[in-house]
Simulated assay, not measured.
Amino acid sequence: MQTVRKKILAISGSTKKNSSNEAIIRFVANSLQEEADVQLFNSIDQLPHFNPDLDHEAPPAGVADFRRQIQEADGVLICTPEYVFSLPGSLKNALEWNVSTTNFSNKPVAIIVAAASGEKAMESLALILTTIEARLPEESKLLIKGVKGKINAQGEIQDAATIRQIEALTASFMRTINAANEIPTKYQM
């Protein structure tokens, strides 16, 4: 029996090119290359500021494309830094464009906050995703403190404990995705 490759949309909360968050996403993509296609959404900084007046049947083109990518994905991976004890504005803005939709309803999601500290960003991101009804098990949440000391200048994760934690999160995330495809939800009936 042939296994169907899963589609994962990865979102980096950092707008910095070659950020620690992108390095972690690349690591996850490489570890999943046999079973999933991981696509990085790299236009988070190009989404317009959320405006309820524009949130209708024909939203701005970039927003419509972003929403389509979420809908088509089997799961969404979010990896973000923490800015001033909160989420980066660009990530919060991207999520706000989905509040009026059911794009995240029962969608398997994994979150990684990779920052100096990160607790407040983790708390905020988990609350937002729970509010928009994402499927986010505890095992699919990871806080990586002191990330700058765990990734080298070439963007490679050097800390063995961090690698094990990411691998455990990735395994949990794939179990959630596979379970979501087997069990009908109230949105699939």
Rank of each mutant, 00 (worst) to 15 (best):
N98I: 03
L32H: 05
E119G: 14
H49C: 05
L87R: 07
D37V: 05
T130E: 04
L9R: 03
F173R: 03
E35T: 15
L87K: 05
N106L: 10
F104L: 08
Q71L: 10
S117L: 12
G118S: 08
S14L: 01
A179F: 10
I24H: 03
A153Q: 15
S19P: 01
S90N: 15
N21G: 04
M189G: 09
A10V: 02
V113E: 11
S20F: 10
E138T: 11
L169D: 09
P137W: 06
I144C: 11
E72K: 12
V4W: 00
E72V: 00
S12K: 00
L95G: 02
A179S: 15
K17N: 11
G89F: 06
S12H: 01
A121S: 12
S124R: 14
I163S: 03
E119P: 00
I11G: 01
I111M: 11
K145P: 02
L142A: 09
L32Y: 08
K107E: 06
Y187H: 13
L47E: 07
S20R: 05
A61M: 11
N30I: 00
K92S: 14
K150C: 00
K6R: 15
A29P: 04
Q188Y: 04
D55I: 03
W97P: 02
A126K: 08
C79P: 06
E123T: 13
T15Y: 03
Q46Y: 02
G62M: 10
Q158T: 15
Q2T: 08
G62E: 09
L91S: 02
L142T: 00
S140R: 01
L40C: 04
L91T: 05
F41M: 05
M122E: 10
A110F: 06
Q46T: 13
G62I: 09
E34L: 10
Q71A: 13
M1W: 08
H49L: 15
P88D: 11
G13I: 06
D55N: 08
N98F: 00
L169A: 03
Q188N: 12
G89Q: 06
T80K: 01
R67C: 06
Q158K: 12
I78D: 02
A73Y: 07
